[in-house]
Each structure stands twice: as structure tokens, then as C-alpha cells.
Design a binder for these strands. Structure first.
Lengths: 119, 119
DNA sequence: GGTTGACCTGGAGTGCACTCCAGGTGCGAT
DNA sequence: ATCGCACCTGGAGTGCACTCCAGGTCAACC
């Protein structure tokens, strides 16, 4: 059971230390263990959870929703159907985002082609 | 040469009237024509430009960059190579966004599968 | 002629997600 | 022992992109 210092977690997850503290403060990350000096020592599990958060955040999930997901996870296995529902709902928004970007990208490509044609 | 009232532009472009005024205030939209009473009357050209802005905005371009693009457009045809460059650069960020979303979506799919498997 | 409704202006306020800061602790190296 | 450094806390500040508000104008309809 290895532990990680804040600097290692920053390296590993790409979150800044301020963001890690912020996530802990608002309860997105459960109270992280401390060493004798009061410094954070993250567990393997914390790292895994942060990976999930990064995925959700980078796909545009608002913090309020991530918080709801975190609460479901904490509440235990009986919330798995709800978690599935939440993730499927989110998956649909991700799908929509992708569709939107692809469509807008076509517009951009057309514009570039047009500009090239008038050169 | 038809003109559009603010309400029509809202309907047509999906921007709120506050956003339209804001875009005009910061120079993203060139001073829109007014009728005798001082009310905005948007041109066909304005509508087209707003379509471009919507595309850029919805693909995550910051306002500062849209402003730079707007200035290039205003500066005349000799800036077309620069506009192409700007749009191509933006296209790359859009491509990256899509790639990222697709990758993250896989992670979400795996998570859902995992949850299903433990039910 | 009064009321409604769409619109106007300048400027203040909002929400989100961080990000920064002041002041302090503890530990390993010189 | 003292220096530098990684870390701590609570709380204030930031940046972005709007969004809202107060107070006013004007035209049209009852």
C-alpha cells in the first residue's frame, strides 16, 4: 500500500495542489490521510478516484454533479444502479458534445476552403 | 436587403439579446445599425457573422481570439492568409478536443460496464 | 390619452472553478 | 543552528463570459 506526497499526485494526475486542496475542501475528495506533520499522504485509492474526477471534469461535468456522484460512491454498493444512470446520462452529453464539435468543425473546414478559394 | 429586429436575431442565432449587446460593446460585432428610435436593426451580414461567432464560441474559442479574428476580417482581404492560419490553428484545438472526448468516453463506457458486471 | 411591450443605456452583479496569499510548521542538508 | 523547501491553513482574489438592473424612450393598440 504505497502512499503519495502532494507533489507526486500533482505529477501523476495533472491537478494542481491548489485544486487537490479545493476538491478536498468541498468534499469531492474524502478527507485525505495526513502524516505526523499534518501533510497529505494520498492512497492508491485516492489516485484512482482522482482519475475518475479528471475524466468527468474534462468531459465537462459540473462540480455539483461530480459531488452527487461522489456521494453515491460513498453511500455504498446499493447505489450502483444510480451511478450507472448518472454516467449514462453524462455519456449522452459527451456524445452530444462530440457531435456538435464535429459539425462545427465542418463549418470551419468550409470557411478555410472558401478563404483558400479566394486567394 | 432585409433587416432583423433584436427579437428576430435572438430567434435566428440563439444568442440572448444581452449577449448581442455585450458582443457589440466589446467590438466583436461592429456597431449595429439603428432605426430612428435608436433600436438595433441587424443586417443579413450581421446574421452571417453571428453564425461564425457561434461556431467559434461553441468550439471553445476564447473571446480574445474571436476579437483578433474580427479585427482581421475588418482589416480587409489582405488578411485572408492570417485568417486561414488562425482557423487552422483553431481547427487543431477542435480536433484535440474531439480526440480527448472520445478517449474519455471510453473510460466512461468501461466504468459503466464494470458497474453492470458487479450488479 | 393611458397602458403595454419591445427596446435603449451604463454600469453593477453573478456563477463557476479555481488560484493566490499571508503567515506558519517541520525536516533534511550545509 | 540556520537555511531552504515542501507543505499546512483559512480566506481573499481572479478571470471569463455573460446576465441583470434601474431608469428611460417610443410606437401601437384599446
Amino acid at each position: 500500500m504505497s502512499v503519495y506526497t502532494p507533489a507526486e499526485v500533482v505529477e501523476e494526475t495533472g491537478f494542481t495542489i491548489d485544486t487537490l486542496r479545493y476538491y478536498e475542501k468541498i468534499g469531492l475528495l474524502e478527507r485525505v490521510d495526513r502524516n505526523a506533520a499534518g501533510q497529505r499522504r494520498f492512497s492508491e485509492e485516492d489516485i484512482g478516484w482522482l482519475g475518475m474526477l479528471r475524466c468527468l471534469r474534462d468531459t465537462g461535468m459540473p462540480i455539483a454533479t461530480m459531488l452527487r456522484f461522489a456521494e453515491l460512491v460513498r453511500a455504498g454498493d446499493h447505489t450502483i444502479p444510480e451511478r450507472i444512470e448518472l454516467l449514462e446520462e453524462h455519456d449522452r452529453t459527451v456524445q452530444a458534445q462530440i457531435g456538435n464539435l464535429v459539425e462545427r468543425q465542418h463549418y470551419i473546414h468550409h470557411k478555410i476552403s472558401y478563404y483558400r478559394s479566394v486567394l
